[in-house]
Design a protein around this nucleic acid. Structure first.
Lengths: 233, 233
DNA sequence: GAGTGGTCTAGACCACGTT
DNA sequence: ACGTGGTCTAGACCACTCT
């Protein structure tokens, strides 16, 4: 045991975790104040604070000034999925990574992409369709729109050694974005690209990326059937 | 502006965020030591530490003792999705929540569930199939296996006013678990329950829950077509 | 060996929300 | 008004890891 006897914040956190998990402190119940716990564990209040803040971030505790700290009624409501770079994910499994640009053109984006990129419907922007492969087998079909008004340099990129995503990560700074996970039924085109049957269910990740108020890119990743995103807590 | 002039850890964090996002400090580059930054912002080192630790947790910085702090090469690799209680999600949208137990029986679980619950193949356990509805329309089809050896009390539950999930959250303590997101093609049975066309792509969430080394339950949620999980960062 | 982040302390003041 | 968590400080020591 590393963090059990010493008065580290981890030791306090573990102890509190156990008391919650073993229902010494029951859901909805108020737990002792930071000052009391500090005395019990003979450590500084800041140490208790560090421990409890972590548990509150994790959703196990609910803290409010004056009201005190309570055990959350509904724990484990969050799950953090990692969104790996496709190259890293594939090479990390020891497979051969490759990609092929299937389509590259300037084009008027459809209304939903216009809305996400916050641009008018009369401006053609860069449209890319790319297939990523693992050991030569289809892995992800990427449909991407790049706001080439905000990133004019992208028009000169050849994407020969860097995939569109890698080029953007390297060349353009990001601020934030949003993610949507859903499922679709594979169309004929999608099935043909991913070498699966038309009508199969596909996991889809839509991502939009922002920088300093400007929308940079909107991308849809359609994963090959059987793909799973996994996480623990 | 709240946290700009005062020497709060948020002010430091915002400033560092900006320098990263505007590439004052470029990806892969080393940034000044905590002590230097503390002097620059005229605050205590602990305050800088708090700010930088947050950015490191978010994946924007990489920190190692002795090596110092560097701007991460691949930012935004994590996305945290909230896994709401179905009742809360539906009622939060102002819709009417309801559910119906479609099937309840003791049964030998299939091999994949046996593995997840770490039990032998010769023990029947509680099997439940439940449909959750929003405004009377199908929302989620839940297929659940409960390790009734670990939770014998569940055999007496009637699930009349509490759904199986709510009953478990209330009665059984949790330790941890794992989540898997994927997509499937709706079978005839699934399509009939969810009132959609057979062959449609469905978003699927598999969850297994643990307590003190024992596996409690394994559940598969199949969401109605069009369901989306969304998050920002 | 030496430099950097990781953490602890004791005390203080502040902000928020309940009462 | 007052109690509780939220944060800051200044200083200290420790743990890791690079050279």
């Amino acid at each position: 045991m590393k963090n059990d006897d010493r008065n580290t914040w981890q030791a306090v956190q573990n102890e509190v975790r156990q008391r919650i998990s073993q229902r010494v402190w029951k859901p909805g119940e108020q737990i002792p104040h930071e000052a009391d716990l500090a005395q019990e564990f003979s450590c500084a209040r800041a140490t208790v604070n560090r421990a409890l803040r972590g548990l509150a971030d994790a959703g196990l505790l609910e803290r409010r000034r004056k009201a005190g700290t309570r055990v959350a009624l509904n724990p484990v409501r969050r799950a953090e999925f990692s969104i790996p770079l496709i190259r890293e994910e594939i090479e990390g499994r020891g497979q051969e990574f490759d990609y092929e640009i299937l389509l590259r053109e300037m084009r008027l984006p459809p209304p939903d992409v216009q809305a996400r990129l916050q641009i008018g419907g009369d401006v053609p922007i860069l449209h890319l369709q790319t297939l990523y492969t693992a050991d030569r087998l289809p892995h992800v079909f990427e449909i991407r729109w790049i706001n080439s008004l905000a990133v004019p340099a992208v028009l000169d990129a050849d994407f020969a050694s860097l995939s569109p995503n890698e080029w953007l990560v390297r060349e353009v700074a990001f601020d934030g974005g949003d993610f949507t996970l859903s499922a679709v039924t594979a169309s004929k085109r999608e099935a043909s690209v991913l070498a699966c049957a038309a009508g199969e269910g596909l996991l889809v990740l839509d991502r939009t990326t922002r920088h300093g108020g400007q929308m940079i890119t909107s991308v849809r990743l359609m994963f090959s059937p059987g793909y799973r995103m996994h996480t623990q807590c």
